[in-house]
Design a binder for these strands. Structure first.
Length: 662
RNA sequence: GCUGGUGUAGCUCAGUCGGUAGAGCGGCGCAUUCGUAAUGCGUAGGUCGUAGGUUCAAGUCCUAUCACCAGCACCA
């Protein structure tokens, strides 16, 4: 006999080898039917596997997230079977459950297109209707390799070969269809249900490695029932309306165009927003003891070689050959060879300049001017640094991933024993500022040493340890991102989420023992000896472009008054009151309010609709009544109706709301 | 960079079998002067991303290229 402890703490006795399914039915008929799998001592296993000892047992049903994840995983298997039935010769690889659904990666010569989705979905429904039981078998390595080799499943063979020697190979069958899988699985395909939809097909590298073959990944979404599925699809539609690229155009914030791919054309309204954000940051960091600098765009190759960028980052840098243009013109005007190329008289003397991709080496140059003492530390040097990086074409994305960006960058030069206090202060400042922008949920990761890196392992040991300790000291919880650090040091990453749930790294703090060494920065310590400062590279917003992109999606374009490019529009009821309307506009302008007038001979309903669509915080309608009493009829964005208030009263209210957070 | 898709008026999009390029919104003009999410009428906008090719004829078919979209890889 074994003793089973249920989640409510009650204990029951069963014969040894009883299954999760048996337990579910022994508790109740309905639970038995609803059971999908069973959690035994925190490990989820199939319902029909025997339980051989005393254990904590929980029956997994669709009510739990774990149950939902199970049907998503099984939907992937069902899709794989469907695809192989419909498209013989397609090889299967891996297919996990993910947030909102699943994907499965296939190898097939011909591409899948969305027009294949209907057929695949229908076949999936057929398989689900067949309600094939999932059965688990344990095979020997040799048998498994032979089986998949015979089937021509090279990718599966590779997976098996790479599994640890002592790992038990579990094979799952759903009807006739066989797959290598760790499990667990549902009792049968019928449990997957019908609330699923194939979403998109895209390429994905085998094992995430760009040197290996590209597979075809089909994504699907799966929910408990049709209602949940519809709700999710509706959510996606709504999210589309928040897309910063769409709002950027609708609200006349910025545009992008082919001739400057990856660089933003900021329009007056967008630039107003940008400047608000920039000035806010400037105020905040100034209060936090930073000094602001500005450094060159073009810097000689020599400095980048010293810093290590030339070695480790060159593929992302825009590099310019510094030739004498007058010579070039002379050559072009006199020569008939048509070469029109820069022919340098002496190739040995050619200089190369790089447009800066980062500000750090330049900041070290400022640090190195004159001598520094321990009394100067920590020296917090900030710059709204305009950086260019030649990002791969496929990486560009609206204003979130661009080739020209402005970082709210700073480098804190400090001593080793200041790392923890500086990190703590930085994290506090970052969280405060994010909160002012309305972000409460921030994902935190610590990224450790990458393969391509500068500095010794000892240095990295020290840096990683220091950063983790400092972050722990701030009380933030974080995930580790192994191998994702910068080439000069490990980093803390702060991630924000866009409208459709993609996360973007914004803030960062990177601990660097390498650059001060390479660029020979030093200060005189209390002991009178020379010491290396530590550099903390840090950004709060990350890049203004990306952050503003996120900000647009976060507020769906309806900015709080302090950020709104246009804070109020004065709209006259009829042209008879244009004089008064203009007077109101002038008064508001005098009070520093960003206000526009709408004196067109349109109906007030038309004007209200238009400015509402532009998400202007306040629409002030003025007509006869308002003129008589020196008031305005205020319509607040997001609410119906209006409130008549004295102009002074309105000014007091909006001025208060327009204040930048302190 | 890779895989797939898309590119037609300022915007959103239609354009069948290859046969003289269309709608709605917006713009402009005129009328209207109106009290909280679209007033009416009229009118002007296009080298169909770019470059080649096939064809009597190309928005439509083919090739190349650029940009964008989704995902992957890379990254703030």
């Amino acid at each position: 006999m074994i003793t089973v402890t249920l989640p409510d703490g009650s204990k029951r006795e069963y014969t040894t080898g009883t299954t999760g399914g048996d337990i579910a039915y022994s508790i109740g008929e309905r639970l038995g039917k609803a059971a999908l799998a069973v959690k035994v001592n925190d490990k989820i296993i199939d319902l029909n596997r025997p339980i051989t000892g005393d254990a904590d047992v929980a029956i997994i049903t669709l009510k739990s997230d774990e149950g939902l994840e199970l049907i998503r995983h099984d939907a992937a298997h069902v899709m794989a079977e469907a695809v192989q039935e419909l498209f013989p010769g397609t090889q299967v690889t891996i297919g996990p459950a993910i947030e909102n659904g699943f994907y499965y990666d296939f190898a097939r010569e011909q591409p899948f297109t969305d027009s294949d989705f209907e057929a695949i979905e229908n076949k999936m429904r057929e398989i689900i209707k067949r309600d094939e039981p999932f059965t688990r078998e344990e095979w020997s390595r040799e048998d498994a390799i032979k089986f998949f080799k015979d089937k021509g499943e090279e990718f599966k063979v590779e997976l098996i070969q790479d599994l640890p020697k002592d790992e038990i190979l579990s094979i799952y069958k759903q009807g006739e269809w066989t797959d290598l899988c760790r499990g667990p699985h549902l009792p049968s395909t019928g449990k997957v249900g019908t609330a699923f939809k194939l979403m998109k097909v895209a390429g994905a590298y085998w094992r995430g490695d760009s040197n290996r073959p590209m597979l075809q990944r089909i994504y699907g979404t799966v929910w408990r029932d049709k209602k949940e599925l519809d709700a999710y699809l509706h959510l996606l539609e709504e999210a589309e309306k928040r897309d910063h690229r769409r709002l950027g155009q609708e609200l006349e914030l910025f545009h992008l165009q082919e001739e400057a791919a990856g660089s933003v054309f900021w329009h007056p309204k967008g630039w107003t927003l940008y400047r608000q954000v920039e000035n806010y940051v400037r105020n905040q960091i100034s209060a936090a003891g930073y000094v602001e600098v500005k450094t060159p765009q073009l810097i000689d190759r020599k400095l980048w070689e010293k810093s290590g960028h030339w070695d480790k980052f060159r593929k992302n840098m825009f590099i310019i050959k510094d030739s004498d243009n007058s010579e070039l013109e002379d050559h072009e005007s006199t020569c008939s060879c048509g070469c029109h190329g820069a022919k340098d008289k002496n190739e040995d003397n050619v200089r190369y300049l790089a447009v800066k991709p980062m500000n750090c080496p330049a900041h070290v140059q400022i640090f190195k001017q004159g001598t520094k003492s321990y009394r100067d530390l920590p020296l917090r040097m900030a710059e709204f640094g305009c950086c260019h990086r030649n990002e791969p074409s496929g990486a560009l994305h609206g204003i979130m991933r661009v080739r020209q960006m402005v970082q709210d960058d700073a480098h804190i030069f400090c001593s080793e024993d200041q790392i923890i206090s500086e990190t703590k202060e930085f994290c506090a400042l970052l969280l405060k500022m994010y909160k002012d922008f309305g972000f409460e949920n921030v994902g935190v990761k610590i990224a450790t040493r990458p393969e391509l890196r500068a500095g010794t392992d000892e240095t990295w040991d020290k840096a990683e340890k220091g950063l983790i300790e400092a972050t722990e000291a701030t009380g933030l919880s974080f995930d580790l991102a192994e191998g994702e650090g910068a080439f000069y040091g490990p980093k803390i990453e702060f991630h924000l989420t866009d409208a459709i749930g993609r996360t973007w790294q914004c803030g960062t703090l990177q601990l660097d023992f390498v650059l001060p060494e390479r660029l020979d920065a030093e200060y005189t310590g209390e002991d009178g000896n020379k010491h290396r400062p530590v550099m903390l590279h840090r950004a709060i917003l990350g890049s203004l472009e990306r952050f503003i992109g996120i900000l647009i999606e976060h507020y769906a374009g309806a900015f709080p008054v302090w950020l709104a490019p246009v804070q109020a529009v004065v709209a006259t009821i009829t042209n008879e009151f244009d004089d008064y309307g203009q007077q109101v506009v002038d008064t508001l302008k005098k009070h520093g309010i960003r206000v526009e007038s709408d004196l067109r001979s349109e109906k007030i309903t038309y004007k209200v609709r238009e400015h509402s669509l532009k998400k202007v915080p306040y629409i002030l309608a003025v007509g006869g009544k308002e003129k008589e009493t020196n008031s305005v009829a205020v319509r607040t964005f997001g609410s119906e109706g209006q409130k008549v208030m004295g102009l002074d009263e309105f000014i007091a209210m909006i001025t208060d709301q327009a204040k930048m957070p302190a």
